[in-house]
Design a protein around this nucleic acid. Sequence first.
RNA 1: GGUGGGAUGGCGGAGUGGCCUAACGCGCCUGCCUUGAAAGCAGGUUUCCUCACGGAAUCCUGGGUUCAAAUCCCAGUCCCACCGCCA
Length: 460
Amino acid sequence: MIDRQLLRDEPERVRDALAARNMEGVDIDRVLDVYDEWRSLKAEGDDLRHERNEVSQKIGQLKQEGKDEEAQEAIDRSGELKTELQELEARADELEAELDDALMELPNLPHESVPVGADEADNEEVRRVGFDDLRELPDEVTPHYDLGEELDIIDEGRAAKTTGSGFYFLKGEGAMLEHALVQFMLDVHREQEYVDLFPPIPVKTTSMEGTGQLPKFAEDAYRIGGSETENYEDDDLWLCPTAEVPVTNMYRDEILLKDDLPLKHQAYTPNFRREAGEHGTETRGIVRVHQFNKVELVNFVEPEESYDRLEALVDEAAEVLDRLGLPYRVLSLCTGDLTFASAKTYDLEVWAPGTESDDAPEQGGRWLEVSSASNFEDFQARRAGLRYRPERHESAEYLHTLNASGTAVGRVMVALLEYYQNEDGTVDVPEPLRPYMGGREVIEGHEPVGEAAVGAGKKD
RNA sequence: GGUGGGAUGGCGGAGUGGCCUAACGCGCCUGCCUUGAAAGCAGGUUUCCUCACGGAAUCCUGGGUUCAAAUCCCAGUCCCACCGCCA
C-alpha cells in the first residue's frame, strides 16, 4: 500500500506511475474526493466526541454534588450528541472503508531507475553470464519433457490421474535431483547468512493481503474450502502461492529492533498457483505447473539500504546458477512488466536449449525465468504492519522488504536436463550437485513400468 | 474435542462503571544540575485529524448494555494448564 499522505501531496506522481504501469480505470480523483470527505467528517466527529466527553464528565460531577436536575439536562444533551455521532460516524466508516479498499488496489510506484516500457519486450538486459564458454551440446537437444519421459524420471500422465493436469510425478533420479537441488540451494544461501524457515503452507487472507496477492489476484490462488471468486473472510485459508507470503507475514504487526536488521530468511516450500488465463500455454513439461517447489529468500532492511540490498540479493540468487554452471541473463523489468507490489524487479532467466522460442539468444533455445528479485520498499510493510525502531526513543518506521525466489527448483531442473544433456540421452550431474546425489555423476534413467511400455515397444 | 485460567503502554505489572488524562516499577530519549559520570529533578516515550492551537482514538478483535466501559454482557482469536483423541 502506498502512503495515503503521498497520494494527497503528489497525486500527479501517482497518476504518472499508474500510467507507466499500464493501469487504466483507476479514478484517482474519486479516491481523493473520498479522502477529503472522510477527513472533514472525521474532524466533525472528533468535535462532537469532544463535546460528549465534556458533557459526560460533567454528569459525574453534578451527580456527586447532588444536582440531579442539571445532571438530567446534561444526560439529555448527551443523548442528542450520541444520535448525531452515530449517523456521522456510520458515514465516515463507509468512506474510510472505501478509501482503504481503493488504496489496497493501487500498485506500488516504480523506482526512478526502472526502465519505462509497455510490456516484457521493453525489459532491459543488464548482463549475460556463462555464454563465453559453453558446454558442447548434442546436435539435437531433446526437450526436458520428452527426455524426462524417456528416462522415466518425469511422469505427467500419471499425475493427471491422481491429481489433474498441471501436476507431475518425479521418479527415481528425477526425485533425487529435486531433493539435491533443494539441499544444494539451501546450503549456498546458508553461506550467505540466511536463516532457514520451514513455514506453514496454508495462509490466511490477511497474510495474502499483506504481501499483495489479495485482493486483486484471487483467481490465481487456491482457496481452501471455498471458491476463489466467492467472498472471503480474513481468516479463510489459501494454499501458499510463494513462501514470500508466510515468511513476510511472520513478523506482522511487530516492531523490530535496528539490531535485528538486515533480517535474512530463506524458506523451502511448495507453491500452488492456478495460472488462470494461462490455459493452452505450456501444456507439456514442468515449466508452468500448478505446484512447484521453491527456495525463497526474504530480506527485511532499513529503508536507506534497500537498493544496495537489491543488487546484492540478485547476486545471492544468481550464485546458484553460477555454481551449477548454467548460462543465464539478468533483466531489469520495465514499468509495464513490474508486479503489483514491486518498486523494482530484476529477473534471472536461465538458458534452456531444448525448445525454440522467438525471444532467444543466438545459440537458440529459450529463456526461462527462474528467479525474480524485487524491492517492495515499504509497500508490503505498510500492509502487514512491519516496523522497526531506528533509535530506541524514536517512533517506529516501516521497514523495507525484498525477496528473491532463490531460483525455482523445477525450472532449474529443466535447464539442467537440457543443458547437461549428452548425445546418448543421459544427463551429466554438475560437479557441485554430486554430493547431494549420492555421488552420482550421470543420470541414466529407469526401465519404464507397466504394460503400456511393452505396447509402445519400449520394453520386452 | 472438553474444562478452567489468561490477554493492559517499549518491558514487568496494578486496576471490577465516572478522580483512568491507566498507579507503581524498569528501560530508553531530551533538558537542568555536574569538570565528566552517577544520583536527583523536569519533560517525553502509540495512532489518526489539524498549517497551527488543539482535538479524537487506543487496555486482544468485533458487537451490545449505559448519559458514561480497561472494568458489565455476547461472539470470536490467540496463549497457558489439565482431560480426551491421535500421528
